[in-house]
Amino acid sequence: MLSYLWVSMILFGILFSAFSGNLSGITSAVINSSRESVEICLTMLGVLSVWAGMMKIAENSGLIKSLTKKIMPFLKFLFPKLDKESQSIKYIATNIIANMLGLNWAATPAGLKAMQELQKINIDKKIASREMCMFMILNMSSLQIISINIIAFRSQYKSQNPSETIGPGLIATSISTLSAIIFTKVFEKIYFKDGDQK
């Protein structure tokens, strides 16, 4: 699935620019993007490690455990098959909370660990499990409560009221998250009949 997507993006891009006579743009795109990804990774190396360190403190101090408990009813509804005490649910909770607060850098390490834990209990290691699908779709439905970057950009460009989009944004993101949950629950019913795990 992913490789099809990747291949078609590249092929479509190169063929399209060949027809529009812009192949030199592709050459610079290749060079620039590889440099850019190294730059991003260097930034990530710093920021993400700082957050991974902070998250480790929160994990060892029991902060994450108590936060997980607070959103447990919600998690139980989304992941009914997951053990309440498992590591995976703790990392999922951390990822969700960090995402809600808009701390993307803190969310990524926890999210990747959640995937590792889910993979451990996955039956077919090549196919995404039901919990993985729910977790990923939820993650991509945008959980962020307040988008701080956007407010900063708005005030940077002299908005009269930079924060006026917070309320409407909150409604919009609730709708996208709600539709994600409904969709996934419906698809779970179609894909996993009679408690079939695969």
Binding site: M1, I127, M132, S141, S142, F187
Partner: peptide
């Protein structure tokens, strides 16, 4: 999708892409 699924070497992602696209479309 790429970063998370590739990190655990999942190749078949079932309805994940469809779900993500639908929720974003609704958004």
């Amino acid at each position: 999708i790429s970063v998370y699924f590739m990190s655990v070497k999942i190749t078949k992602i079932r309805y994940t892409l469809a779900g993500a696209l639908i929720s974003n479309f609704f958004g």
